[in-house]
């Protein structure tokens, strides 16, 4: 049983077909990178997997950890261990980061039949992880992503990834807007997350992230379908030659 099994997926946004017969398998312990030009459907794939309203699956099947995702609500997907790191994390003034993180963690534990972790223990863990990601623990007191720079928002996404310990992380252009230091920190966080029990679907435009997070497989998404797959060298070729050779 694959961790993620996408078979012949078609999906539309506002009635417009975006994903067209996309198939992909991710096994536990693997990192798959999805690359592709603008508008190829990379973010649509991420949002479809997370169950975002407005993203309609019109054909095909997606199963996660052996469970079909059709009709499964976003919160149930998350509780089952599917995590989406947003390309544009939302700012939520008035809701502190710590409160949000604790609520998210408690909901995961409740879904597994566990009692909430003590606030003290959780805060200690969150602060330590934040520090490791170069996030000032003071950020945990602020509103969710409120006034964060682009890099801080992405670090905050990785903090959530590490805290929630999902089975599958879908990282939607987590490297966009990051300077070199932040890129390395975020990559270190993803590598820390990586284990034989979980998987990562890494959506990116640039090969530079893959210098720090070495993928097992690289796929090229064009016009809603995967047109090429390979190992990490495929990303290097794309970096050097672009996508034009694929359509030629």
């Amino acid at each position: 049983m694959s961790l993620l099994d996408i078979d012949g997926l078609h999906a539309s946004v506002n009635g417009e077909p975006i994903l067209k017969d996309l198939s992909l398998r991710v096994e536990a312990g693997e990192i798959h990178a999805i690359m592709g030009p603008n508008g190829s459907g990379k973010s649509t794939l991420a949002n479809v997997l997370a169950g975002r309203p407005g993203y309609e699956v019109t054909a095909g099947q997606v199963s996660f950890d052996g469970i079909g995702l059709a009709g499964v609500e976003p919160e149930a997907r998350a509780q089952a261990g599917l995590f989406l790191a947003f390309q544009y994390p939302v700012e939520i003034p008035g809701v502190s980061n710590m409160e949000f993180l604790k609520a998210a963690w408690d909901s995961h534990r409740a879904a597994q039949g566990s009692q909430p972790e003590s606030a003290v223990g959780f805060m200690k863990r969150a602060r330590a992880l934040a520090k490791g990601l170069g996030l000032n623990p003071e950020f945990l007191k602020r509103g969710v992503n409120e006034g964060f720079s682009g890099g801080e928002k992405k670090r905050n996404e990785i903090l959530q990834l590490l805290l929630l310990e999902p089975k599958l992380a879908v990282l939607d252009e987590t490297d966009s807007g990051l300077d070199i230091d932040a890129l390395q920190t975020v990559a270190a966080g993803v590598n820390r997350f990586r284990s034989a029990d979980n998987g990562v679907l890494l959506i990116t435009h640039y090969q530079r992230l893959l210098n720090h997070i070495v993928p097992d497989r690289v796929h090229v998404l064009t016009e809603g379908r995967i047109v090429a797959s390979g190992d990490k060298h495929l990303a290097e070729k794309l970096e050097a030659e672009g996508y034009a050779w694929l359509s030629g």
Binding site: P74, G94, V95, S107, G143
Partner: peptide
């Protein structure tokens, strides 16, 4: 914002409560 919270596993009622409270706290 609602989807963001749902995507982290909060149930809809809890997410709405948190967002409402956040709005007032602001």
């Amino acid at each position: 914002a609602l989807f963001y919270l749902l995507s982290r596993g909060l149930d809809p009622q809890q997410a709405q409560r948190l967002l409402s409270l956040g709005f007032l706290r602001d």
